[in-house]
Amino acid sequence: MNIFRLCGDMSHLAAIIILLLKMWKTRSVAGISGKSQILFATVFTARYLDLFTSFISIYNTCMKVFFIGTVYFTIYLIYMKFKATYDSNHDSFRVEFLIVPVGGLAFLVNHEFAPLEIIWTFSIYLESVAILPQLFMISKTGEAETITSHYLFALGSYRALYLCNWIYRYYAEGFFDLIAVVAGVVQTILYCDFFYLYITKVMKGKKISLPA
């Protein structure tokens, strides 16, 4: 564990808590893409299959349980409890265009052609594009609530901090995982235009509204 990864995990934790607070306080899931949350649930389920078979640390287990629990709770809020406020018309990204190529790539490019390894690789690749339905939804509605912008900023920062973690691990431990790093770079790049909007607008108290 190093400071970059700890900050990354805390940023990820903050993103999930911000999202839950937004939903619970406003009793609304307006502007939130249910499809992205389903993709995140798939990512966590596929990645944490070893939750019961390999124990790494209390911290690792607690975080995995929290991430899996909250993402399914979020899906429950979107598609059941606050279903009336779910904007399915704008949440129209075709996730099959993500899952099929990512699934195929996981079969072709992985560290070892073994079931658990392929599933893990699939979760890494899927996570790098899982935010697309959410960003697509914001581009369709043309705006994002400020709290949603904070959620996305924290979520985008988490993987950016993981990139720092991998740089640190490369120089400190000589460890390097090309698959995780490449997917992490792609994932962070997808947030760049949002980061730009966030820093130039939200930080100055304005709302994010696309092509103004």
Partner: peptide, 10 residues
């Protein structure tokens, strides 16, 4: 050294 892998990451 611990078996180096990304699996110890979240």
């Amino acid at each position: 050294a611990t078996e180096q892998s990304s699996k110890d990451e979240l």
